[in-house]
Design a binder for these strands. Structure first.
Length: 558
RNA sequence: UGGGUCAUGGUGUAAUCGGUAACACAGCAGAUUUUGGUUCUGUUAUUCAGGGUUCGAGUCCUUGUGACCCAACCA
């Protein structure tokens, strides 16, 4: 979505689009190439979704291409399982990579380039311990001092590096470091690590390598090998850019350029992989795809559509400042989509029996109701109006407050697409609990053919007791009680204990009984719901994606 | 305290040789409505602070202030 400035009528661009347009206009590039570079060590979340939409979206807009590249340089944390889930998430979002690559495809080349760097006297093998290296790097305010391996000869370094690669040293015995500037104000330029020794099995290269390149030695060169023109990452990589450029410059290879944008934060959720993992490991949620998680898998299971997430990604924009996006924007995006596309169905979460005393048992009045008023072409369906009905407990109050226009003793409501009923008597058990309502219906008030002349303010949904089907409905709410849980001393202490409410004895209309997992509906007046994979042949399970906007709930809080 | 990045309504993003702050969400009020939904209308509210240049500054200069990032054999 683009915005037009009022004065000029020109399209408003984000800063990355401006850069791309300038590069295209100047002839620097004829076409652009972007990439999405996830590390296959976990599930993708909504933050990644933004990055995916941005990288693929930029390429689409300017006629370029986008690679998916797995940044698999650390064999001890990466797994094939994640490669598969990441690819399916990208595709689910609606994007097809032009190429699928792996940083590990370039291990051989990277190794050759490392030797080239050593030959130029720009890298050396260092046997210092991590503590020694840290100490010799100095601090941001004091320059570092050369370690004792910094002046090893090129020939010897070449030999030592060969031994590293040959597996002659144990893990952590030594590293390859770039020889740059120990006094640089940029800590990343103080002889950064290029290679470490890890005798670990790699998900793709197996046991071929025991030395693995660090991010800084792998990423820029991988971009360069693929001729990536615009390499977009997040703000924390700004200090790495100098090193990114340095490596490419030393090697004299295609100069990919790195651009940084702010990552986005979502209110009432946490986004860091570490925190999300804690939630899963410590069983605060049922798994990575628990519908309360911000992972793409979770949003999918909850009932979000790819379209809604793409629209959201566009709406939050791209910039370089810190931000905290309101959850309401995400909710707006999914409601907008589902309002248009989800079929309407009746469901009662907390049933209350209604007996229509002036309708004989066995009599069925067939009614018609629309499948989606936003799309009349979806037609109508028939629903049965019978003596025994179910309505929502919330839709009846014995002592209603002002402005309550649902059912109350002596009062009337319209049953949507049915008849107007009046509540004559409230039935209770010995404890005083309401067990049923005795009502009478107004035969002349038949929906669409109302000649009763009655005007009722309230309209409620309902189900016939003769054909209602049992279902489980899971009501999800925000996982945290505070806007910015990550800012808390202990984010887990702010978990919302009622973020999941399960209605095990909800009732649904027959038209819903055979809905397939993934199918989405609006439960009239309640919200949008999606069939969960936990459903089985005798019971459907629904997840609430999001409620409808509820101005009555808001009114009550006043 | 060395270096870097960023400051525009409640939130996010625009304002493209300096031309008089806009769009979306949220909020509020009303209309329509057989979903207290949708739709429609109206409305509240914004340039971090001080100084300077200029007819005119969110934009340029200057001095501050604040937030965030950087010293992993992680990415």
């Amino acid at each position: 979505m683009t915005t037009e400035t009022q004065n000029t009528g020109r399209e408003s661009l984000n800063f990355l689009e401006e850069i791309v347009e300038a590069d295209l206009a100047s002839g620097k590039y004829e076409t652009i190439l972007t990439r999405f570079p996830p590390e296959p060590n976990g599930y993708l979340h909504i933050g990644h979704a933004k990055s995916i939409c941005l990288n693929f979206g930029l390429a689409q807009k300017y006629g370029g291409k986008t690679n998916l590249r797995f940044d698999d340089t650390n064999p001890s944390t990466e797994e094939t399982e994640f490669v598969d889930s990441i690819l399916s998430d990208v595709r689910w979002l609606g994007f097809e990579p032009d190429n699928i690559f792996y940083a590990s495809d370039y291990f051989e080349q990277l190794y050759e380039w490392a030797k080239l760097l050593i030959s130029k006297g720009k890298a050396y093998v260092d046997f210092s311990s991590p503590a020694e290296v840290a100490a010799s790097k100095g601090t941001p305010t004091t320059p570092g001092v050369p370690g004792k391996y910094r002046e090893t000869s090129v020939e010897e370094n070449l030999e030592l590096f060969e031994k590293m690669k040959a597996g002659e040293y144990p893990d952590g015995h030594c590293t390859l470091r770039a020889k740059i500037d120990l006094a640089s104000p940029n800590m990343h330029m103080r002889d950064p690590y290029l290679y470490r020794i890890k005798h670990a099995h790699h998900h793709r290269t197996g046991d071929k390598w025991c030395i693995y390149p660090m991010y800084d030695w792998a990423h820029g060169q991988s971009d360069s090998i693929e001729n990536i023109t615009h390499s977009i990452c997040t703000l924390e990589f700004i200090p790495h850019r100098e090193l990114y450029d340095w490596c490419i410059e030393q090697l004299g290879i295609f100069p990919s350029k790195q651009y940084e944008m702010a990552r986005f934060n979502l209110s009432y959720t946490v986004m860091s992989k570490r925190k999300l993992k804690q939630l899963v490991d410590e069983k605060y949620v049922s798994g990575w795809d628990d519908p309360r998680m911000p992972t793409i898998a979770a949003f999918r299971r909850r009932g979000y559509t790819p379209e809604s997430i793409r629209a959201f990604a566009t709406r939050i924009g791209v910039a370089k400042r810190e931000n905290l996006i309101e959850l309401s924007l995400l909710e707006f995006s999914i409601r907008e989509d589902l309002n248009r596309h989800a079929l309407r169905r009746f469901a009662v979460l907390d049933p209350l029996k209604v007996i229509i005393t002036n309708l004989p048992e066995g009599q069925i009045e067939w009614m018609e109701t629309e499948n989606n008023p936003e799309q009349p072409e979806t037609g109508n369906r028939k629903i049965a109006f019978t003596r025994e009905l179910w309505i929502e407990q919330d839709d009846f109050m014995e002592n209603p407050p002002p402005k309550y226009f649902r059912l109350s003793p002596g009062g009337m409501v319209r049953l949507k697409s049915g008849f107007i009923i009046r509540c004559d008597e409230v039935m209770k058990d010995e404890q005083g609990n309401i067990t049923a309502l005795h009502c009478t219906y107004v035969p002349e008030s038949r929906s669409g053919q109302d000649t009763s002349g009655l005007k009722v303010k309230g309209v409620i949904h309902w189900l016939s007791a003769t054909d209602a089907v049992e279902a489980e409905v899971r009501l999800y709410d925000r996982l945290f009680k505070v806007e910015d849980p990550a800012a808390e001393e202990n984010f887990k202490a702010t978990i919302h204990e009622e973020s999941l409410l399960i209605k095990k004895n909800a009732l649904i209309e027959p038209a819903l009984a055979n809905a397939e997992p993934g199918e989405k509906f609006q439960f009239t007046r309640l919200g949008y719901f999606c069939v969960d994979p936990d459903s089985n042949s005798d019971k459907r399970v629904f997840n609430r994606t999001v409620t409808l906007k509820d101005t009555w709930a808001k009114e009550q809080k006043k």
